[in-house]
Write a protein that binds this DNA or RNA. Sequence first.
DNA 1: GTTAGCACTCAATTGAGAAGAGTGCTAATG
DNA 2: CATTAGCACTCTTCTCAATTGAGTGCTAAC
Lengths: 341, 341
Amino acid sequence: MLSERQKMILTAIVDDYIRSAEPVGSRSISKRADVSFSPATIRNEMADLEELGYLEQPHTSAGRVPSNKGYRYYVDHLVTPGGVQEEDVRRIRSFFAEKMTHWEDVIGHASTILSQLTNYTSIVLGPEMFTTSLKHFQLVQLNEHSAVAIIVTNTGHVEHRPVTIPEGIEIHDLEKMVRMLNDKLIGVPFIRVKSVLHSEIASELARYVDRCEEILNVLEQSLADQKDPRVYLSGAANMLSQPEFKDVDKAKNILDVLEETTKLSQLFSSAPGGIQVKIGTENTMEAINQCSLITATYTLDGQSLGTIGILGPTRMEYGKVISLLDYLSQDIAVLMSRWYK
Amino acid sequence: MLSERQKMILTAIVDDYIRSAEPVGSRSISKRADVSFSPATIRNEMADLEELGYLEQPHTSAGRVPSNKGYRYYVDHLVTPGGVQEEDVRRIRSFFAEKMTHWEDVIGHASTILSQLTNYTSIVLGPEMFTTSLKHFQLVQLNEHSAVAIIVTNTGHVEHRPVTIPEGIEIHDLEKMVRMLNDKLIGVPFIRVKSVLHSEIASELARYVDRCEEILNVLEQSLADQKDPRVYLSGAANMLSQPEFKDVDKAKNILDVLEETTKLSQLFSSAPGGIQVKIGTENTMEAINQCSLITATYTLDGQSLGTIGILGPTRMEYGKVISLLDYLSQDIAVLMSRWYK
DNA sequence: GTTAGCACTCAATTGAGAAGAGTGCTAATG
DNA sequence: CATTAGCACTCTTCTCAATTGAGTGCTAAC
């Protein structure tokens, strides 16, 4: 357990370091208006904090730098989110005031505004389809053996995927099928579509239609969940303005990761609800061991739809980013729910 | 007009510089197997080439570096495309052998493989819709005032956009309308859809349907061409491996541009058919004045569908990239045409 | 418990010298 | 007369040592 003074000093050091990116010395802390101790006293406390693992020294004659453990303590106990600046709120408003025609636009805009307001990199995972329900299903035939399956969800989201029609299947049968699907499946949440397909429909189907197995396959294929959720990335180049990545090689390692969307969605995979902060080596991916990732989920009717996140150096403005993500995730939720009506 | 020997020396210097990124001295040229002149002779020629504007000297006691004019001459008269390496052909094959379900997949894959094979940044502009024709049109109603328009092209490409239904329009009328559209418009190239809509359909429509103007608006809105073609970017981080951009600030300027897809499509706007090379300051955009952009269009039945391009430093492997773009643009054309059938 | 004082450490900066790469010019050469 | 050897000269880059300065840790005094 840290004393009040230790907390105060740790806060001061983290805040200072976040601002300046330079190791913080005892003198500069002691000079702060709200501090009334001499550098020597601060030094003693700093030595203690270092022994406890909250601070580190790049080398003996430098100031102190927060360790990962230090940041963790700061995030858990010291930081004051402090809300979103008025200016930022205004910019978000005006950004979302634009006419957005597709669902994806909301997400894309959110990603852009996040990176602009923070000067970090923003990563946003689009809503996954299975959280919604089926509104309309249709097959459009292109030629003898191929068609496009079109799925519209209750939220107006449209998915489409090409389908191969097996040899010898009657178009007639397929159409019958699609009609039946629209009767039975509309309103069913995607999460349950598959089971309903098998339990309620398969049996009935077998009576009317030849080779129903194959047709079922086609349907399952077209209703299958998309593999990877869409990833929206914005402000990747902002990484380059961080002094810790002025070394091009380090920067390249990170940007390489950012280009692989599959890796990015992995990064988010373990995100629970609410706001989560992963600091430095808490991230399993080695390339971003010097980064922190803050994520928030946006929800609709209590159900998690997707995730928005900010990636920056461990020396990140935690308070600001946390407030912002909190605010924006709720904003997105509101926008989504409007869409919903 | 350059003498044969000058051409040879210019070629040697450009080739050397592309390989090494270091100013090329007279000695290193003279040591090449196919050169039988002393350094002094080379120096004389180099001085001449510099006076003519083909070479530059970073400082008096350094070797020579090609100027933009030098690269231009090299690209126009000296470079030998030399075809695509067998290894590369194999990798392209295996990459395209993957099952690609959407049209966008082809383009996305092309972008990825391009950046991987060249270690530069690849930019690919997706095919624009208006080059295809209408296969199927449909409105799916979501609630009283909104619907989703779904457009399927003959190539299996699906577009969808939300539509607002004006107050007081009969669903019935809308449906009639859609049926009529499907009768009249299927097979019509998008480029002509608008005019057909007005000339053949508007008049007939007016007879059957109330408030036809408004409905026509809805339809036009839903059939309107997408504003900006999709941009696929790959290997942006490769810029960081170029020695000329080891300075983070320079790199950031470029990456910032790459993040703005609208700017990217502008970049391509002036691309004519065939292969085009824009060297250094020939690019109007200032941030990429130290880059070269090579573009190629891919066509279907003689009609340009889209553009693939490579952005790299002016010190780029022009021969290799030109061959590769040429090869790949034809490959894409073939893939697209298969899709077409 | 706090602080002034001081010796000590180590990175960063500076400057001088040496090394090296390459040039331009001149004069010799085949 | 084109080519080339020779040489002085230029300019960058590297290295090394000295200096500077920020910051610490410890001790002794308050």
